[in-house]
Simulated assay, not measured.
Amino acid sequence: MTRTIDSLTPEDGKDWLKSAARAGYAARGLVFLIVGYFSFRAAFASGEAMDTKDAIEVIAGSGFGVVLLVVMVLALAAFAVWRLIQVVMDVDRHGTGAKGLFVRAGLLISAFSYGGLALYATTLLLGSASDGGGGGKSGVIAYAYEQGYGVWVTYLIAAGMAAAAIAHVVKAAKAGFEKYMAIPEDRRWLLKPVCQFGLTARALTFVVLAGLLATGAAGYSSGDTPGLDAALQEIAGWSFGWLFLSLTGLGLIAFGVYSIAEAIYRRITIPNVPDVG
């Protein structure tokens, strides 16, 4: 039976938002599966580690590149919107205390990050991406350096990265993600340690990136601050770097699995929006 517009309920809108959020988690998972795979491969063979933009370029160059890019643009944009909903509506009930505001600030940064990635995928789709990539974060930082306060912005971002690392480690150690997910008991024994490993690996990249940002802040004159690929290359340069890089690559693959698990099992609650019409 065909439903008219008048017959649609608010729940229909919620279902659409929930589906969009799940698509966003899946898109994030795909990106990190690619980044993790190439990082692991780089540990044992010639090649360079990748960042999230490089992963989008890999998707663009695949056999169904245009179709996949369209899907990625929509899914990443939906994920960015979902992050904003999490911040504004506090759907996970983090509250307005110091800890809650800290978590919501991190979600806001995530919203801008994945929104920028969706924008970058759009430029690839339209054939207008530059060789250097660009991106929202670099543009903001470049502007800050031009205005004379870029060093402090870079220090602030480095502090945010360090805080995010701590949050990821705590979430991994306490398996805090479980209260937001309905993982079937017969799969929990496998998914729980995989998710914990993925979160820990992601934390490591945040720590390294924070260090790179903090130590080099005074030297960035054009906003050319390091990204995830630089953090992975730094890890490769350590003693036994191949081992650390391979483990980090596997960990980022695990983080991709964690994101896909969120797409499937996360409890997504959309609050009622008051009718102001």
Results as ranks from 00 to 15, higher is better:
L212N: 09
Y180C: 00
L84H: 06
E234A: 15
A49V: 06
A163M: 14
R28Y: 12
R104I: 09
P271Q: 05
D186F: 12
G237C: 07
A121P: 09
G116Q: 04
A80W: 10
F44Q: 14
L243A: 15
D131P: 07
D92E: 15
K137L: 14
F177N: 07
G127Y: 09
K14Q: 13
Y37Q: 03
E185Y: 08
A142H: 02
M50S: 05
S113R: 11
G251R: 07
K18A: 06
L69K: 01
I270N: 08
A173D: 06
T225Q: 08
G249Y: 03
S46P: 05
G249P: 03
A111L: 06
L126V: 11
A175H: 12
A60T: 05
L199H: 02
L126R: 13
Y114T: 00
G95H: 14
G61R: 07
A162Q: 07
M181G: 07
V31R: 06
I166N: 11
W152Q: 15
V140F: 05
T123G: 04
M50I: 04
V151S: 11
M72Q: 04
F38K: 04
M89Q: 14
P10N: 11
D92S: 11
H168Y: 15
K137W: 08
M89A: 15
Y143R: 08
A78T: 11
F64T: 09
F44W: 15
I157A: 14
I260F: 09
P10D: 13
S62K: 04
V140G: 00
G116L: 05
Y120C: 00
V58E: 13
T269S: 14
L69P: 02
D6L: 06
D92K: 15
F244T: 06
L243T: 09
F40M: 11
T52Y: 00
V273K: 09
V151N: 10
T154K: 01
A172D: 04
L190H: 02
G136F: 15
Y149M: 14
G219R: 01
V67N: 09
S7W: 00
A118I: 03
Q86T: 07
P10W: 13
G63K: 10
I264N: 03
E262P: 12
L125H: 12
A60F: 00
L204P: 01
L199Y: 05
S239Q: 13
S221C: 00
A23R: 11
L119H: 07
G176P: 13
A118Y: 03
A26H: 08
G133L: 10
S7A: 13
V87D: 05
S128V: 13
L190T: 08
A26Q: 07
A27P: 10
F38H: 09
V170I: 15
D12A: 11
D224W: 00
G63C: 08
A42G: 01
A217K: 02
I235S: 01
T9D: 12
A144M: 04
T52H: 01
A261T: 13
L247T: 06
V71L: 13
A158N: 07
G47M: 12
S246N: 02
L119F: 12
A158L: 00
S19Y: 02
L8E: 14
A77T: 12
K18C: 08
G127Q: 11
A217R: 00
T122I: 09
L213I: 01
L68Y: 05
I268E: 06
L247C: 11
E48H: 14
I260K: 04
